[in-house]
Simulated scan of single mutants.
Amino acid sequence: MKTAHDLVTAAKARVDEIAIDDAEAAIRDADIVIDVREADEFAAGHVPGAVLIPRGMLEFRLSGAPELASRTLKAVLYCKTSGRAALAACAMQDMGYTNVRSIAGGFDAWAAAGKAVAQPSLPSFE
C-alpha cells in the first residue's frame, strides 16, 4: 500500500522541478501558469498571472478548454509546497502534455524568496 508521500516522491522523480531561482524565467517562457491549490489559498495570494485550476478539477478543465488542448503547451504548475503540483504535472504528462514543469518548494518557497505576490482586491463599498 502506498501513502500520499510515496505518490509525491514518485511524481517528483518523473517531473521537471524548477528551482525557485529559475522560476521567474520559466514563468516568462510559459504559455500558462497554473495554481493547483484551492480557491481560498489562491485568494490569500498567488503568483502574478497564474490561473487557478484546483488539483481535483485539473483533468476536467484541461479536457473542456479548447485553449488548453495543445499537448505542446508550456505549463508551469505550483501548489503550497510542491506535492500537489508534482501529482498534477504527472497527470498532465499522462494526458500527453510534453512541456510541463513544477516549481520546487511551491508558493511557500516563492513567497519566502521575496517574489511578487498578487492578491485580489475587494471593492470598497464606501
Score class of each variant (00 low, 15 high):
1 M>K: 10
7 L>E: 08
8 V>S: 06
9 T>F: 09
10 A>R: 12
12 K>W: 01
13 A>D: 06
13 A>G: 09
14 R>D: 11
16 D>W: 04
22 D>C: 07
24 E>N: 01
26 A>Q: 02
30 A>P: 10
33 V>E: 01
43 A>W: 12
46 H>F: 13
49 G>D: 10
49 G>N: 08
54 P>F: 13
54 P>V: 07
59 E>F: 05
60 F>H: 07
61 R>K: 15
62 L>D: 01
64 G>F: 09
69 A>K: 15
76 V>F: 01
76 V>L: 02
77 L>R: 03
77 L>V: 01
79 C>D: 04
80 K>M: 12
82 S>N: 11
84 R>N: 07
86 A>G: 13
90 C>G: 03
92 M>G: 02
92 M>S: 04
92 M>R: 00
92 M>W: 05
95 M>P: 05
95 M>V: 05
97 Y>A: 10
98 T>M: 03
98 T>A: 13
99 N>Y: 08
100 V>T: 08
103 I>P: 00
106 G>I: 12
107 F>D: 02
108 D>C: 00
108 D>G: 07
108 D>W: 07
111 A>S: 13
111 A>Y: 02
114 G>E: 08
116 A>Y: 12
116 A>C: 04
118 A>M: 13
118 A>N: 07
120 P>L: 15
120 P>T: 09
121 S>F: 12
121 S>P: 04
123 P>L: 14
123 P>Y: 09
124 S>P: 03
125 F>V: 09
125 F>N: 15
